[in-house]
Design a protein around this nucleic acid. Structure first.
Length: 291
DNA sequence: CATTACCTGCAA
DNA sequence: TTGCAGGTAATG
């Protein structure tokens, strides 16, 4: 499921409900492989008694800042849902982690596909997680110049680069597709081939699609829910993602589906040309003569 | 760099 | 039955 907007909304809606509460027990943990660090014995020993001080997000990681310098980091991967519920809600076979809180509520980590991951990190572990990701696209420090440096000289396709969390944080398949459509850039263009104007367009497009998705409480295709168990509304606003064979809302051409890096990729063949249109006089003269 | 693996459910 | 799904790590 979740990309940056969905994790952001999930973190915000969790914050409304659990800040200041204490984790009193690990009530259920039936998929032990989801705990990446520390070892299980330490996880069981360290978590009870921790107070939840703040909620945050880094890339697609939800961060629960605890006392004593600990951070509980949750990654929802494809199908994870983190929500709060009281004792009246039963766990099901997909609920793999339940944290009991001191007000009687519980944090549920529900994950149909079991790809979700949990880390309990000290300050060094948190710094390591931070350092392993690229810049946050919604930060003020993320400027077109920063994006230009990330793209510079790279031959890898722009779509693959946008999905690489080490280069830029938070984009997944939906918003990478939509940002490229909005910027009118073909997903297979080599990253280093974008000119200054295209980089400015892409920088702006990334922010626009993410901000709009947050305003719409994220996208729910199948599993995604916020911290109250509610679905998002952004899925009706997709620009290119999942719109194969439908008309481009900008030019009316038919949206195509191709596969890039084993991921479905949607583009408008008219608005997102495979080759950048060179503006040099030589090209224009040749183009004119050929025509 | 491209495949494959990790999991499960659902629609074609 | 096959292919596909908001992601990433581990392989050739």
């Amino acid at each position: 499921m979740p990309e940056l907007p969905e994790v952001e909304i999930a973190a915000r809606t969790l914050a409304d409900q659990v800040i200041g509460l204490e984790i009193v027990a690990i009530e259920k943990l039936d998929w032990e492989r989801m705990v990446e660090t520390p070892d299980l014995a330490s996880f069981y020993a360290l978590l009870p008694g921790r107070q939840i001080r703040a909620l945050g997000r880094r890339a697609k990681w939800m961060l629960l800042t605890l006392d004593a310098g600990w951070t509980l980091a949750l990654h929802l991967r494809m199908s994870g849902i983190v929500f709060v519920a009281g004792a009246e809600v039963d766990t099901d076979i997909y609920t793999h982690l339940v944290l009991a809180l001191d007000d009687g509520q519980r944090i549920f980590f529900h994950d149909q596909r079991k790809f979700g991951r949990v880390r309990l990190l000290d300050s060094a572990g948190l710094a390591e997680l931070d350092a392993s990701h690229g810049p946050e696209p919604l930060d003020d420090q993320f400027t077109p110049d920063v994006l230009a440096q990330i793209l510079d000289q790279r031959t890898t396709s722009i779509k693959v680069l946008l999905l690489d969390q080490k280069r830029i944080a938070g984009l997944g398949n939906i918003y990478a597709n939509d940002a490229l459509w909005l910027a009118q850039i073909h997903p297979l263009r080599p990253s280093g081939s974008l000119d200054a104007d295209e980089i400015v367009r892409l920088h702006n497009a990334i922010r626009v699609v993410l901000v709009q998705a947050i305003q719409n409480n994220g996208s729910t295709l199948r599993n995604y829910r916020n911290g109250y168990g509610q679905a998002g509304q952004n899925q009706v606003h997709f620009l290119a993602y999942d719109r194969a064979d439908q008309p481009c809302t900008r030019c009316g051409a038919t949206i195509e589906r191709i596969v890039v890096a084993q991921r479905s990729t949607y583009l408008c063949p008219t608005c997102q040309p495979a080759q950048r249109m060179p503006a040099s006089p030589e090209y224009q003269r040749e183009a004119g003569e050929a025509a």
